[in-house]
Amino acid sequence: MGLIQREIEQRGIPTISVTINRTLTEAVRPPRALFLRWPFGHPFGDPGAREQQMTVLKEALRALLTMTQPGTLVDLPYKWRRQVYAGLPESIRLDAGPR
């Protein structure tokens, strides 16, 4: 995935990826990535967990605004299950301008 990401970024489109395999992402070095220590097959969360999915998607979009160094890899603080997601998506603001 990081390899695909690099090719897209190289051709002038800003990219962000969500990863659940930190070692692989460290090796591939995509431009921007968010790491979650979550089970394989669940990068945006659980089936039907709308707020959990929205939290990760909004974090990804916000990273396009906040990350400024090529190769930035940030660990998201969210726990897989023991986390209250209600209200979290609303707290993630996407309305800052691009720098």
Partner: peptide, 30 residues
Amino acid sequence: VPWLAERWAAHYEGVKSADVPWTPLRKPLA
């Protein structure tokens, strides 16, 4: 067994990269 996948990745030499491409976002997300 996540550490198994991590170990597999550590041996995935073919994909190690040095330089990182970069394109800044050009407009507000809206």
